[in-house]
Design a protein around this nucleic acid. Structure first.
Lengths: 138, 138
DNA sequence: TTTGTTGCAAAGGGTTTGCAGGAGA
DNA sequence: TCTCCTGCAAACCCTTTGCAACAAA
């Protein structure tokens, strides 16, 4: 997925403001989900208020440019979506780096679970936690 | 998993109080995850304060008798664990009924994802949403 | 009698809302 | 100019904490 630009903002009916560009840049520059506070901390002065960040993230999630994740500490974090369509996240418990992974093979498992439970499965949510390649080496 | 009784409370070093028994009974009587408020609403008068329920649920989760789930509305809900060991939940989006399902087949998917991502996967969390057998018929 | 539990009130923390002033288009 | 957006402050809501009174063992 291409990074949202001024053009995408306008195309989405959103005005181009320094705050918006800055939030998008911060999220673009990292592969780690960030809390709202963390996003603000990475923005240049003058940093916007938290409500501004919350309101914009809401827009970005709506546009499919970002996603909110609830980590194991149950804090809400936001990441840029780098691929289109359904995917999951695997997060390194050591360094926090997060990558997107596809759904490869999950469908057959869902089929089995569907049979076993008698439910028709409509949606699913999978969160993975582990150690990334870099952190394993250390 | 057998339902926690006065005996299990004592075995866990917890005193047997009417409040505890009542919370356990409420959770036992439903297969739908409940918020703390919902648990209280189902308790007979005099209903305990919310802090009491929160504190006891903490104990129950620690004992493996209950689990906390974050629904898609991101509200914290609690369910009785009816089986031991690792499992997932599938919740009916129509009636709220929730059943536990095993991990059947998921391991091989995790293996693939591990290879694809270069991560070593330590933990995972899978939430399933769908329609239960009863609701499909209607 | 001892110590864990409860109830109440208040604190806490993250998120949302309201509204006036400011800035894109 | 016309809206949309931001900043600030306050409101909100859920959850946790502190402490005195109470009750299980």
């Amino acid at each position: 997925m291409t990074s949202p630009t001024s053009h995408s903002l306008r195309a989405a009916g959103l005005r181009v403001t320094p705050q918006r560009r800055s939030i998008l840049e911060v999220m673009e520059a990292t592969d780690r989900p960030l809390t709202v506070e963390e996003i603000r901390a990475r923005m240049a002065d003058p940093q916007p208020g938290l409500p501004t960040i919350y309101r914009n993230l809401e827009h970005f999630v709506q546009q499919g440019w970002a996603e909110s994740l609830l980590g194991h500490d149950q804090a809400m974090r936001f990441v840029r979506c780098r691929s289109e369509g359904h995917h999951h996240h695997i997060q390194c418990e050591t360094c926090g780096r997060t990558v997107e992974v596809g759904c490869c093979g999950l469908e057959s498992v869902l089929g089995e679970l569907q049979t076993a439970s008698g439910f028709q499965i409509n949606r699913h949510q999978l969160q993975l936690f582990g150690t990334c390649g870099n952190c394993i080496q250390e």
